[in-house]
Design a protein around this nucleic acid. Sequence first.
DNA 1: CGCCTTCTTGAATATTATCAAAGAACGTGG
DNA 2: CCACGTTCTTTGATAATATTCAAGAAGGCG
Lengths: 247, 247
Amino acid sequence: MTDSCFIAKLGHYIDLSTEEKQLLAALERDERDYPRHATVYQYEDVNRSFHIVRRGWLYSYIDLPDGRRQIVRVHQPGDLIGLPDLAFRQTTSALRACSETVICPMPKNALDTIFRRAPRLTALLFTLSNRDQVVFLELLRAIARMDARERLAHFLLDLASRLRITNPGMGSSFRLPLSQQEIADTIGLTNVYVSKTLGRLERDGMIARDGDRITLTDEPGLVELCSFVNRYQQVDTEWFPISDTAK
Amino acid sequence: MTDSCFIAKLGHYIDLSTEEKQLLAALERDERDYPRHATVYQYEDVNRSFHIVRRGWLYSYIDLPDGRRQIVRVHQPGDLIGLPDLAFRQTTSALRACSETVICPMPKNALDTIFRRAPRLTALLFTLSNRDQVVFLELLRAIARMDARERLAHFLLDLASRLRITNPGMGSSFRLPLSQQEIADTIGLTNVYVSKTLGRLERDGMIARDGDRITLTDEPGLVELCSFVNRYQQVDTEWFPISDTAK
DNA sequence: CGCCTTCTTGAATATTATCAAAGAACGTGG
DNA sequence: CCACGTTCTTTGATAATATTCAAGAAGGCG
């Protein structure tokens, strides 16, 4: 229970009571393994579950009829996958594992227990869901209005900021288990241009690469380049109800 | 109270009880007018309120340091503005009126009452917030992976679909109170290219224009063009708690 | 009627995509 | 442990889409 990245991630924002932790741990009771590149579900599958990521990275994507693909979210350990699909009976994207993964499925109505018994967790989930909305809007700005170099900077900073939540001592280096085609599908470029642009960032001394390991050698420069704001570090919890799980 | 577009919009998805309607109507007690092109708030203003749109259109936008602008959401009557900012003390975008508008500000913690007294409304708001997330992800796909013609089709269909919620008999024609520069800032193009692409859509017989009035003369063609899915018509409400406002 | 904003149109330019091929990395099986 | 096939990355040449710049037309408002 204490090794749950999900609990760690939520615990970053508020001090969780024992009861709250127990409620959350119950969500991760079930567990499933997927190998590298496995498809967890496809577009418009019947939508029954959320998933919490325990180990490995995954991504949600939408395909266009002609084969173009858009990755709409890269998921890391501790992430909750599928909240947007709460509103629909069928999935609105497909889910695929980047590397070997362990994820915990939970039924759509598992949230009920949280909603009824833990108002403070409800407020937190609601807040984080809206926080993610802001993250998407800023991603939209990056993709719609920035050039390849700026988009790539934004992409790398976003991933690093998220890893640091569960991994505070991470430093400026991390493993990036995505191919350049997958990076391209995330930020709206081609694999070829991602290669060229990564090369340029490297020559400019802003990043360094070693296999699938990325180091942000000039993080302030990258931040400046794309006006990055870290939305993950802190959220406003002041208006939350006090922690009485029983209510 | 019955003339509230917000209540009409929510009422589209579930049958609201009298108590629920009263709770919602209370949110719109306060009311403010803004003239065309007025700024309601700026980026990083202290964030105190949500807003419900009563009349007119507005948009939320983010500027880049060099003057590039991204409009992240166009707001229509009945829309709730500012939910994403719930997570932060300062606004993450600016808000501007397209035309003369009437909006109802309400404090951040006005949601408390809803959360505590109306579980079904809570579920609906949570669901609609996540529905919007899906809408953004599909917008992301459009902007990242589609060309100008497809993006424009997506943009027009999105606006029309939303208007039809409060306006079921609307047909295929509506007023579009945005300049081409503003359209460009919404879908990541330049005003010049919007002009050229609108002209092309018109010559192709897919749309017609008359002043700021747009008619979708070949809506199936537009839908086909950008693989549009109407996410506004229906959401999954089956898992909602039953309507006992008192609880 | 005249000014100001918005829209249209054309020409030149730039960024990114497409195509193609070679090189590197990786896993697998002999 | 090396050979081989596969996937991923790099690099160069060419093409396409969208931008930038500029100027004229149209439309709304005082």
